[in-house]
Design a protein around this nucleic acid. Structure first.
Length: 504
RNA sequence: CGCGCGGUAGAGGAGCGGCUGUCCUCGCGGGCCUCAUGAGCCCGAGAUCGCGGGUUCGAAUCCCGCCCGCGCAACCA
């Protein structure tokens, strides 16, 4: 089994914000989970560097574009590290390997007769030396230069998107799960149905970019360059190895709704034209809308996710991202919400469960866990199947909720069996052993199941229970815990955070 | 105009044809426990599941209409 997952490549000249972290975190949860199930995985993220603005800013600073992006790409390389995303490769569209591949890719489209010369017309700002869209303008003027852009026409190359209308409709009809959630597929499909126009894939006025192989006076336009990263990375991520046979087309693209059209319409058409299979799935998620009542003093409404990690820890932020908003929908989140989740769910439900479990094993059995399975009122086996099914379908939130149901069951089990009562009665020693075992066992299974979400904390739980740190998915089952000794009352997994520190 | 999404207890969300409106987080009222991170558990108050029709033995869940909020409408990562 193979699983290749991508995030979009982020625009290098902007700043990482919570939304970028969100996509990267969710992607990592999916990949880590598949890895637990024994899949051979590949996880790709990176940056898009070929924008005219990059070249312009670089020139202002007396740098080459690549020198400039070398300076700012660090923020983006930092992002996966800080959210503990287990990426396999970080692509930059200025990579030599990418450029070479894009040229090959476009040449195939060209050879296939899908490219023709046409006239591209638009509003052009001479100050910026680029075309502007309506949304770029303020009061009809370029906000940077405060002048009205001029209508300009240039000769460049177009891709015959219109030729792929029927093929795309067939794709959507044959593969209802190509784009998920379903309502996004509907959106894309109705867009296609309304009729597709060819689009320009090159720019004559721009110099920073990948030259077209058949006309080096023009460079590839952003969408003809950036999307191809998903494929190009496979050709050079591991020197001397072509990963395409392994990971194409078992690719899953993760992206936010703003770039649905390019991924769900343009990209499959480009692939078909170039003779590649289309991706296995594209999952479109919504926006994380951060409620900015009492935060965002100087940063507008941009909350730096890295700051949140400093306060609450990476696992808490990952957990929150997966839990706070139903994955796929838009959702409003707040820093209060993060703190609540941290204290109530991670601290009280899970952290405290480990504390009380280990404390009782230490106190009543001198730290010895005996293998004495009972018939607890939950089924780790059902959980394993349910969670796997949900994560195969990108239901990151639902899968977590399912695991949390187990965590809550364990707390209820403690109350129902009252081990502190059993401990008072020598005749009930076996019963106590069973309860303690069931608790440790359930917690072991929960920790393994949760490890994709909270990769730092899960092994800590296993260690505290004297269990192996093996995260294989087969361990999410009843009776997974082994006998152990030397179990001591565990320190808090998610200690309370002082209010001062919590003010982000 | 068109297309899409949403409108569920005080707040925010799951649920999307069937056991009495079930569940989750927070808030509110009451109680239990003492293993534990001022943690845990139970009970309760609180909803005509936007409005009006229809389909069905049965609808929050499907269909039609309407109202309200949001998004998209093509070169905008």
């Amino acid at each position: 089994m193979r699983y290749y997952l991508t995030t979009p490549i982020y625009y290098v000249n902007s700043t990482p914000h919570i939304g970028h972290a969100y996509t990267t975190i969710i992607g990592d949860i999916l990949v880590r989970h598949q890895r637990q199930r024994g899949a051979e995985t590949f996880f790709l993220t990176g940056v898009d560097e070929h924008a005219d603005k990059v070249a312009r800013v670089a020139a202002e600073r007396g740098l080459t574009p690549r020198e400039f992006t070398d300076q700012i790409v660090g923020h983006w390389q930092e992002l996966p590290r800080r959210v503990n995303a287990s990426i396999d490769f970080f692509i930059r569209t200025s990579d030599e390997g990418h450029g070479k591949f894009v040229q090959e890719f476009l040449q195939r489209i060209y050879d296939n007769g899908d490219v023709y010369e046409g006239v591209y017309a638009g509003l052009y700002c001479y100050g910026c030396e680029e075309f502007k869209s309506e949304s770029d303008l303020v009061d009809g003027k370029c906000p940077l230069h405060d002048v009205e852009p001029e209508w300009l026409e240039e000769q460049n190359y177009f891709f015959r998107l219109s030729r792929y209308q029927d093929a795309l409709l067939r794709l959507y009809d044959d593969r209802p799960d190509f784009v998920r959630p379903q309502f996004r597929a509907n959106e894309a499909r109705s867009f296609i149905e309304a009729g597709l126009r060819d689009f320009s894939i090159s720019r004559a006025t721009q110099k920073w970019g990948i030259p077209l192989p058949w006309d080096e006076s023009q460079v590839a336009y952003v969408w003809a360059d950036a999307l191809v990263n998903y494929l190009s990375a496979l050709t050079y991520a591991r020197p001397g190895e072509d990963l395409r046979p392994k990971f194409w087309p078992v690719v899953r693209h993760l992206l936010a709704k703003d770039i649905l059209r390019f991924h769900a319409v343009y990209w499959p058409a480009l692939l078909l034209s170039a003779g590649y299979e289309v991706p296995r799935h594209e999952f479109i998620h919504g926006y994380l809308l951060v409620e900015d009542r009492k935060i965002s003093k100087s940063l507008g409404n941009v909350v730096d996710p890295l700051d949140l990690i400093d306060v609450y820890g990476v696992d808490a932020v990952r957990f929150w991202a997966a839990r706070a908003v139903s994955f796929g929908q838009d959702g409003t989140v707040s820093l209060d919400g993060l703190r609540e989740r941290y204290e109530r769910e991670l601290g009280n439900d899970l952290g405290n469960l480990l504390s009380r479990t280990t404390a009782m094993i230490a106190r009543y059995r001198g730290g010895e866990l005996r293998k004495a399975p009972g018939q607890p009122p939950w089924s780790a086996d059902d959980l394993a199947r349910d969670v796997a099914e949900r994560l195969d379908a990108f239901d990151v939130t639902g899968a977590l909720e399912a695991i949390w149901t187990l965590v809550r069951s364990l707390n209820r089990y403690v109350e129902a069996t009252a081990p502190w009562q059993l401990a008072k009665d020598e005749a009930k020693a076996d019963e106590l052993d069973t309860v303690l075992y069931d608790l440790a066992d359930g917690l072991t299974a929960a920790a393994v199941a949760l490890s994709a979400y909270i990769p730092e904390t899960a092994p800590t739980i296993l260690r505290a229970l004297g269990q192996s740190e093996d995260l294989s998915w087969e361990r999410v089952r009843a009776g997974t815990a082994e006998a152990a000794t030397g179990i001591a009352a565990a320190p808090p997994l998610f200690p309370r955070i002082e209010p001062e520190a919590a003010v982000a």
